[in-house]
């Protein structure tokens, strides 16, 4: 009898030969069931599926439960857990120093919409090439559940306290100020979030994703508008987002009549399958109007809200050399002796 060798099950690898475990990070120390953990999982999947080289990613965050999460994905990427509300500055500096990095920022709703709102709005204006994710639970998780500035009017804390101030819509702000890829999703919507993240990795401008991410410990009860059950009941998807990376052929299983195809900078394609509205994500006014309307209806509008693949990003605007400033050799950064002599002569 001929012996047969049993083939070992083929390891699942991506196009650069890495497996999903190569994108894992440390073990999460967040609460079990925290929405932030699901977002970390989607980030891992998106980077794996896109074949992102981990060494090219810089993970950046402020302070909060959400801002801790970069330690729990992409363990072989550099990370910087900075100070509360200031991740945009750290990200800006990082990208100025090394334009080849993929900056992946994670923030919270407190970190962004309260203490960090100043840096947030200026980041959006600059259209810095980076991905900015708000893990939005409507409260301060790490400091035990106080309201944040994205908490909805009338929503209730566990302690019974009712929020009497209107929320800041970070997506509307981002769109108004100049971010070029703006979306909203829900940590529990695996499919949509993954597609949005993959699209984000192909975009070269500011990506701003507000991801509703329930805090199971402080903000997942009745009366909270950022709880699992509330979001599941009130999610109004704009359309179905599908994403085809630049290295795959565009499949044709979308009904052409109801699909919009958008080409991103790196040649990838975003396919938007329309549901009930005839939605064009490149129209700023439509995006803002729809956001307001659904907000008034108590709905949470999700999907890719706005996209501008044309606007130059901050690094292009600064006309920086193509190689990272960080590693320029001395000969390129220290002018020769004769340059100093020339200036000294002028000052005599």
């Amino acid at each position: 009898m001929a012996t047969t060798t049993v083939p070992s099950p083929r390891k699942k690898v991506n196009r650069i030969g890495l497996g999903p475990s190569d994108y894992k990070g440390g073990r999460s120390t967040l609460c079990a069931g925290c929405g932030h953990n699901s977002i970390s999982e989607r980030i891992i999947e998106a980077c794996f599926e896109m074949g992102i080289e981990p060494y090219r990613v810089a993970k950046l965050s402020g302070i909060g439960c959400s801002s801790k999460s970069p330690a729990y994905f992409l363990g072989s990427s550099h990370g910087f857990n900075s100070v509360h509300g200031r991740m945009p500055a750290i990200a800006t500096g990082t990208i100025l120093a090394n334009r080849n990095l993929i900056a992946l920022g994670v923030s919270g709703d407190g970190d962004t919409a309260s203490i960090g709102i100043g840096q947030f709005v200026h980041l959006m204006r600059r259209n810095l090439p980076m991905i900015y994710i708000i893990e939005d639970n409507g409260c301060y998780g790490l400091t035990k559940g106080q309201f944040s500035a994205t908490a909805d009017l009338g929503s209730k804390l566990k302690t019974g306290v009712i929020n009497d101030l209107p929320p800041i819509d970070t997506c509307a702000l981002a769109i108004m100020l100049g971010a070029t890829y703006v979306g909203r999703s829900f940590s529990g919507d695996k499919r949509q979030l993954l597609a949005l993240l993959k699209g984000a990795l192909g975009h070269r401008g500011t990506v701003m994703l507000d991801v509703i991410s329930p805090c199971v410990t402080f903000n997942d009860h009745e009366g909270s508008t950022k709880s699992y059950s509330y979001v599941q009941d009130h999610d109004a998807p704009l359309g179905e987002v599908s994403f085809v990376p630049f290295f795959e052929d565009i499949t044709v299983d979308y009904d052409p009549g109801t699909t919009t195809e958008i080409r991103l900078h790196d040649g990838s394609h975003l396919l938007l399958k329309k549901l009930d509205v005839d939605y064009d994500p490149t129209n700023k006014m439509d995006a803002l109007r729809l956001l307001t309307e659904s907000h008034d209806k108590g709905e949470i509008l999700t999907g890719l809200l706005y996209l501008d693949a044309e606007r130059p990003n901050f690094i292009d605007m600064l006309n920086i050399v193509d190689v990272p400033l960080a590693t320029l050799p001395e000969s390129m950064v220290r002018p020769p002796r004769q340059a100093l002599d020339e200036i000294m002569e002028e000052l005599k």
């Binding site: 810089a58 950046l60 910087f80 900075s82 100070v83 200031r86 945009p88 500055a89 750290i90 990200a91 800006t92 500096g93 990082t94 990208i95 100025l96 120093a97 090394n98 990095l101 100043g118 840096q119 200026h122 990272p324 400033l325 960080a326 590693t327 950064v333």
Partner: peptide, 20 residues
């Protein structure tokens, strides 16, 4: 930058990533 918080934050981000 938009203020000194951002100015120093950017400079630190850049220093971390290897710029002078």
């Amino acid at each position: 930058a938009e203020d000194e918080l951002a100015a120093i934050g950017m400079a630190i981000g850049a220093g971390w990533a290897g710029a002078r």
